[in-house]
Computed example of a mutant assay.
Amino acid sequence: MRMLLIFCYFSLLLLGNSCGESSEKTTNANTIDTTDSTEVVNTNKKSILFFGDSLTAGLGLDTNEAFPAIIQNKIDSLNLPYQVINAGLSGETTAGGKNRISWIFNQKVDIFVLELGANDGLRGIPITETKQNLQAMIDFAKEKNKDVEIVLTGMQIPPNMGQDYTNEFKNIFPELAFKNNIKLVPFLLDNVGGIPELNQPDGIHPTAEGHKIVAENVWTVLREVL
């Protein structure tokens, strides 16, 4: 039953992100909001850049309800010298992320949380292309700051594209984490995806309560880096 719910969750997301339309032109709750939520970092603190899609942006919620803001609250409660930058953009693919990463890194980034790939999988983009784009972003982050800590968030998709594609997509993230010796959040939406009460009416984006769980999924790994 759990897997069926997750399947339905991502099937709805696939319908909301039609391959035939530009993801940068739609604005309803099921698809794209191109408002860039990147925040300015306090230079007196080290920076944690969350670079992702609508899950990072917190589509449908106030910015302070999205999981990056929840993590900022945790950091503040522990008096740690870090400031979160939310660079989430709804509808973003790995290709889009690769294209905009250079100006995002105009300031020094100490910790880079890479949350991209879900839209690639739902659109059936070739596995090799998604993997190459993610690797390019990892390489870019390291080139900009050789001491940067990188956290990659894993994602899973339903078997719409066939079981082979589904399995290969799921394996992208642990393979890249191992290859690059970086931290991995195994599944960003663990205990959230497919659970109606933790998602907004569109059945796609987590509610404020859902984002609290997503924040815990990320924090479990991120706290080892801080």
Rank of each mutant, 00 (worst) to 15 (best):
M1H: 04
R2S: 08
M3F: 05
I6D: 00
F7W: 13
C8W: 09
L13V: 11
L13E: 10
L14C: 05
L15R: 11
G16R: 09
S18N: 14
G20R: 11
E21D: 03
K25D: 14
K25P: 01
T26Q: 09
T26I: 14
T27H: 13
D33F: 09
T35K: 14
D36G: 06
S37Y: 14
K45A: 02
K46H: 07
S47N: 09
T56K: 08
G60T: 07
L61K: 11
N64K: 14
E65K: 12
A66L: 10
I71C: 06
I75C: 03
D76E: 14
L78D: 11
N79L: 00
L80T: 05
Y82F: 15
V84F: 09
V84A: 05
N86R: 02
L89P: 00
L89N: 01
S90L: 05
G91K: 05
T94F: 08
A95S: 12
G96A: 06
G96F: 07
G97D: 06
G97I: 08
K98R: 15
W103P: 00
I104W: 04
I104F: 10
N106L: 03
Q107G: 00
V109M: 08
I111H: 00
F112V: 03
L114N: 05
E115N: 15
G121N: 06
R123S: 10
P126C: 06
T128F: 07
T128W: 07
T128Q: 04
A136E: 09
A136S: 15
I138P: 01
D139P: 00
D139T: 08
F140Y: 15
A141L: 07
K146M: 05
E149V: 06
I150Q: 04
V151I: 15
L152M: 09
G154W: 08
G154F: 11
I157P: 02
P159G: 07
N160K: 06
Q163R: 05
Y165I: 06
T166W: 03
F169S: 01
I172S: 10
P174M: 07
K179Y: 04
N181S: 13
I182K: 02
K183P: 02
V185Q: 06
L188T: 06
L189M: 15
D190S: 13
L198T: 11
L198Q: 08
L198C: 05
P201W: 14
D202V: 08
G203F: 11
H205A: 09
K212R: 15
N217Y: 04
W219V: 12
T220I: 08
T220K: 14
R223P: 00
R223S: 12
E224I: 07
